[in-house]
Structure formats: structure tokens, C-alpha cells
Amino acid sequence: MSSPRSRVTTLARHEYRAAVRSRALVSLIAILAIVTFVSIYIAAIAYRSALADYEVYVAAAQAGGVQIIAPSPLRLLSLLRGAIEYIEIVGAIIAITLGYLTVSRERANRTLPLLRSRPVTSGELATGSALGALGIISTLVLVTGIVALLCLGLIGNSWATPYEVFKVGLVGIASVLYMFVFYSLGALITARTRVAANGLLIALGIWLLVALILPQIGDTLDADNQIPGGLFSALAVDKAQETEILTHFGTYEFVRTGIEELSFAKHYERFAFAMSDVQDKYQGFTLAQLAREKWHDIVWMFVYAVALGYGLWRGFRRQPALPQGEKS
């Protein structure tokens, strides 16, 4: 008799292999790989040029006997911005497609009754599928991370320090979590709809809402975003005055922030940008400082992942073993 562990492992491997053999999924992964590589490649070339300029400046300053040399304004990890944004968009679509394929494959092949006539519980089926998907997502993110770091070193002429590699690793974990949420969403909604393609469309609609529309609404409603460079800067209002002014718009800010908080994508983006030095204000922060600043986004990401992971598990458990409508 097989053990639950061996059955879950078998199901996870099966899911992994099925995903790798799906042309639609492989095409999407190829698109993500290409756009990510191009984005980092272009950024790395610009970085190399800027680095060369800086080195010329340093050499000239040293030759001129300058005692205090300005530190480099360049931030290596900020070159990953494009990669993070592509994971945010294309990665989410890949994850939704993966979730859709998990369910639609069993339906199209009519294999669910065969699986359930074996010593496989619905919980094992859900766990195996989710682990297989996590395997695919982790491989994708890991390969993207390694290629990105190699690009920085080989093309940008600047190798990441162990601390920077660690921060990229944290962004990778957040990326896996982010894609797993969208995988769960795709699988859950497809499992709940009678026609699998409708599930895919609904999941893509939700992705559109949380990854693009809600953050855009939040940004548009932000008073400081109304003019280039920032409204408060243009008015020569300092941070203390800005805070004081915004207290008069408490309800407005509450609604605006609430809309942004609804977006899982926004939490991922805020965390990933902070870790990869994309935002100036976090430059030079230690890991503890970054964690203190971003705990809110970390908690929200875990809340979303746990909620959707649990929803997926329950959804799979409730999925009927027999095709709906088969009654004779």
C-alpha cells in the first residue's frame, strides 16, 4: 500500500511534468524570460556606462588630490525593477494559467474519477497539485533570479555582494508567494465554474482589478501625484507640514489607502521595490530597518497567501469526483 507522502509526491511530480509539457504555459514562461532578460540587459548596459563615468570621476578626483570623494549614486539592485514589474504582470498571468490548467486538464481528460477510485484523498490531491505548482513557480523565480544576478555581473560589470544576493533571495520568496496566490485564484475559480474557460476569464478579470486598476486608482487619488515631482514639493511644503495638511483629509486618505491595501500586487511591489533599492528612501537601510518599514506589506502578503491557499484546499476537497451532469 502507498503512503500518503508518496502519493502526494507522485501527484506533485505529475503536476510539474504536466505544466512543463503545456505549450501555452511554456510559451508564457518564454515570454517572461525574454522580456526580463531584455529589461535587465538594457539596464545593465546603462549601469555599466554610468559606472565607468563614476570610475573616471574617482580617478580624476584622486589624481587631483581631492580628499572627499562623493559616494557612488548607483544602486545595483535597482536594475531589477523591470524584472519585478514583469513578474508582477506576466508572472501573475502564468500563475493563473497554471491554476486553470490544473483543473481543466483533469476535466478534459476525465481523469478525476480515475484518481478518486485510487487510494487518493481529495486533500492529497489538493496538496500534490499545489506542491507541483509551487515547484514550477519556484524553478521559474530561481532561474530568473540567477540570470538577473549573472546579467548584473557580466554585463553591468558589478557583482552583487552576499547581502545583496540575500535581499534578492527575499524578493524571490515574495515572488513565489505572489505567484502562488494567483495560482490558487486561477485553480479555485476554475474549480468553481462549470465551464473551465469561464474560470480563467474571471480570474484574469480579478487580476486586472488587483494588479492594475486598484493600484492605479490609489495612485491617481494621491494628492502628491497630481503634478510631476510631487505637489507638496512644488508648493515647497516640508514633510511635517504635509502630514499636518493630510490630517484634514483623514477620511479621503483612509479610503484611498484602503483601495491600495486591497491590491495584493501593491503589497508585493512595495516590498520588492524596498528590498531592491528601487525607492530612494530605503537606500542604506539595514534588513531590520527594512523589515520594520515593510512589516505591514509582509503580513498582508501572508494573509492573502494563507487565505487563498486554504480556499484552494477547500475548493479541491469539495470538487465532485464525477463530471457534473453525469447521472445515469
Binding site: S3, T10, L11, R105, A108, N109, R110, T111, P119
Partner: peptide, 22 residues
Amino acid sequence: DVRLYDHMTASENLEFFAKLSG
């Protein structure tokens, strides 16, 4: 109307179901 997994070979299908049955 048995279908099994189209993306797999016949042997792979059988091995998969055999593994699930221990």
C-alpha cells in the same frame, strides 16, 4: 469514455496510476 492523460505516453500513464496504488 476513458481518456487518460493525453500529454503522457501510455507507459507513463500506467506508471503514474501504479504509483498511486502503491
